[in-house]
């Protein structure tokens, strides 16, 4: 269940690992690890951000921060700053959904 640091390094060097905050709305990622800078890594771990957990980006708040995520069947919001410390592997095949929107598409990078 746990990836060793080598594997994490591999994943990152292969360009698979990205900060969670880099994902667009509607995209999914799988948790690889937390960056050591994260002060929240224990708390988030206990709330279900364990390795191999699938996380979906639901939406960001009106002023682009915080961001709402979904995991393990519930919804949680994190600030961008905190989401940056969670390294995920982007899942291909973005879920295509027709969404009711007035706004523009996410512009995070």
């Amino acid at each position: 269940m746990n990836l060793s640091s080598n594997e994490v390094g591999d994943a990152l060097s292969k360009g698979q690992g990205v900060p969670l905050s880099d994902l667009d709305e509607g995209e999914c990622g799988v948790v690889i690890r937390f960056s050591t800078a994260s002060k929240l890594r224990i708390r988030l771990r206990e709330m279900g951000f364990t390795p191999e957990t699938m996380i979906e980006v639901i939406r960001s708040a009106p002023l682009a921060d915080p961001i709402e995520y979904s995991l393990k069947g519930y919804f949680i919001s994190l600030r961008r700053e905190e989401a940056k410390e969670i390294i995920v592997r982007r899942i291909d095949g973005k879920r295509k959904r027709r969404r009711f929107r007035f706004g523009w598409r996410g512009r995070n990078k």
Partner: peptide
């Protein structure tokens, strides 16, 4: 858990209430 078809009610309400432009 049977995967749901379409979006949940909560999701749809939030598409409006926490919308980028309309939220505030």
């Amino acid at each position: 858990h049977r995967p749901q078809e379409g979006l949940s009610v909560t999701h749809r309400i939030d598409d409006i209430l926490t919308n980028r432009i309309l939220g505030l």
